[in-house]
Computed example of a mutant assay.
Amino acid sequence: MKINNELLTKGFIAAGLMNVFGVITFSRIFTNTVIPEFDSQAMSNFGLLMIVIWGLVFIAVSKNFQHLKWLIAVFTLEKLIYATHWTKWMTTNNLRDVFEKDKMAGIFYTIYGINDWIFFTFFLFVFIRLTPER
């Protein structure tokens, strides 16, 4: 299957939209206090705002990613860090406790790491694709 740049551009936009609208929706525009309560290290309101900023960056480079191989490597690393953090969080916390306090926060914690693993794989694929064969 041949994956063209137009499809990859859509992948960058999708990654960005997931970050932006996922955070804005589940944090109720940064008013949901339960998300930061359960992970104040990564999911403070400042941390959530930075996730939105990353999303805007993904969208901003979507049409020029072919020239930004090393920035795509940074995106890959960023997603790996968040996905790994989520995986560790899932093994040391009880998701039921989050759902009991707030359903939106529970949904957020259920899906954000899956999203990050998916887009880690996407960005890794793009980075490898931009690496010339020797």
Results as ranks from 00 to 15, higher is better:
residue 34 V to M: 06
residue 17 L to G: 13
residue 68 L to E: 06
residue 77 L to P: 00
residue 5 N to S: 15
residue 127 F to L: 13
residue 113 G to W: 00
residue 19 N to E: 08
residue 87 T to Q: 07
residue 3 I to Q: 07
residue 29 I to C: 12
residue 59 I to T: 03
residue 33 T to K: 13
residue 85 H to F: 10
residue 59 I to Q: 03
residue 113 G to Q: 04
residue 30 F to R: 03
residue 25 T to G: 11
residue 89 W to I: 06
residue 73 A to E: 03
residue 132 P to K: 15
residue 26 F to M: 03
residue 92 T to M: 12
residue 82 Y to R: 05
residue 64 N to L: 03
residue 84 T to M: 04
residue 15 A to M: 13
residue 85 H to S: 08
residue 34 V to L: 10
residue 99 F to M: 14
residue 115 N to P: 01
residue 114 I to T: 09
residue 94 N to H: 13
residue 13 I to D: 00
residue 123 F to L: 09
residue 74 V to C: 14
residue 85 H to A: 15
residue 91 T to C: 10
residue 52 V to Q: 07
residue 90 M to E: 07
residue 8 L to E: 06
residue 25 T to E: 00
residue 113 G to H: 01
residue 7 L to P: 00
residue 106 G to T: 06
residue 52 V to N: 03
residue 113 G to D: 02
residue 121 T to N: 07
residue 22 G to A: 06
residue 24 I to E: 04
residue 125 F to Q: 12
residue 96 R to P: 00
residue 97 D to M: 10
residue 25 T to S: 15
residue 70 W to A: 07
residue 88 K to G: 10
residue 48 L to T: 00
residue 45 N to Y: 05
residue 40 S to D: 11
residue 92 T to W: 05
residue 128 I to M: 12
residue 17 L to C: 15
residue 112 Y to N: 12
residue 3 I to Y: 04
residue 11 G to C: 04
residue 47 G to W: 03
residue 131 T to Q: 14
residue 53 I to V: 15
residue 121 T to C: 14
residue 30 F to M: 11
residue 42 A to K: 06
residue 75 F to H: 06
residue 129 R to A: 14
residue 113 G to S: 08
residue 127 F to Y: 15
residue 68 L to F: 10
residue 95 L to A: 09
residue 61 V to Y: 14
residue 134 R to F: 10
residue 82 Y to L: 15
residue 57 V to S: 05
residue 130 L to E: 07
residue 83 A to M: 11
residue 14 A to T: 02
residue 98 V to L: 11
residue 113 G to I: 00
residue 60 A to S: 15
residue 112 Y to D: 02
residue 81 I to K: 10
residue 64 N to K: 10
